[in-house]
């Protein structure tokens, strides 16, 4: 499970360096992300620009981490490739995350209402 962490204004950027976030990887991804999230924040900017394929298992892992976030922390997303973006749109999960344009620095907004 390849993940790199970089400190940014207000938190960390978590770059997922995996081509596929699918059922074969979802549990490891979730466990790794949970480790990373503890002790950082408040912003966890999840950079998915290297992920070319994600299914509902990958989405489920991100949602599980979101549910378990400590008070005051938030997950925002950046670098959605077209196939990953499609999964967020079809499931309407684009409505519950703040999603930034490719590679852009996070805007100083709270995650959506």
């Amino acid at each position: 499970m390849n993940i790199t962490i970089e400190e940014i204004e207000g938190g960390i950027r978590v770059r997922v360096a995996e081509p596929r976030l699918d059922a074969a990887l979802a549990i490891r991804f979730k466990d790794r992300l949970r480790e990373v999230v503890g002790g950082h924040g408040p912003l966890i900017l999840l950079d998915l620009s290297e992920v070319g394929f994600m299914d509902s298992s990958g989405l489920g892992a991100i949602l599980a981490i979101r549910r378990a976030l400590p008070q005051g922390q938030r997950i925002e997303l950046t670098g959605l490739t077209p196939n990953v973006d499609r999964v967020f749109r079809l499931t309407r999960m684009d409505m519950i995350f703040t999603i930034h344009g490719n590679g852009a620095a996070p805007a100083e907004t709270e995650a959506g209402a």
Partner: peptide
Amino acid sequence: SPELSALRAGGFGWVI
């Protein structure tokens, strides 16, 4: 609602 779906985190596969 999307928020409730996010909490349940199930059934997305068949939606797709």
